[in-house]
């Protein structure tokens, strides 16, 4: 049997997580649906945020899903790539800003 850790077809089975914990799963999907409805942010803006987070989380299912959603909500390639740069900048910045903690600790220990 072929083993693989990611099958794009599994995305369609996401809803199956309710099979082993129906009440919690249902609450999650209700909340999820509510989150992506148009509110103070447009559906397009929410899809771009989701795309950025998907990349930060390196979730291949989410990347496939929100690449499609962004197109369907009217975002273009430039906007989608900018959203990913935002995620990358925060990931990079979050790593580097911890350098201050490292510097503080090294200074404390050094003469």
């Amino acid at each position: 049997m072929e083993k693989k850790y990611f099958d794009p077809a599994d995305l369609k089975k996401f809803g199956n997580i309710t099979e082993w914990q129906e009440a919690m799963g249902k609450k999650f999907f209700d909340w999820y649906g509510e989150v992506f409805k148009e509110g103070a942010l447009t559906e397009r803006e929410k899809a771009l945020i989701a795309l950025a987070v998907a990349h930060a989380e390196a979730c291949p299912y989410c990347i496939d899903a929100y690449s499609s959603t962004c197109l369907e909500k009217g975002a273009d390639e430039e906007q989608m790539m900018e959203a990913i740069h935002v995620a990358a900048a925060i990931k990079g910045g979050a790593t580097l800003v911890n350098g201050v903690q490292m510097m503080n600790h090294v200074k404390k220990l050094s003469m």
């Binding site: 559906e43 499609s68 197109l71 369907e72 909500k73 009217g74």
Partner: peptide, 17 residues
């Protein structure tokens, strides 16, 4: 109309944009 294999967004949203 979409430039690819995807469905259009809501007309109202697209019109505003």
């Amino acid at each position: 109309n979409p430039s690819g294999a995807f469905l259009p967004a809501s007309q109202e949203t697209l019109q505003a944009e």
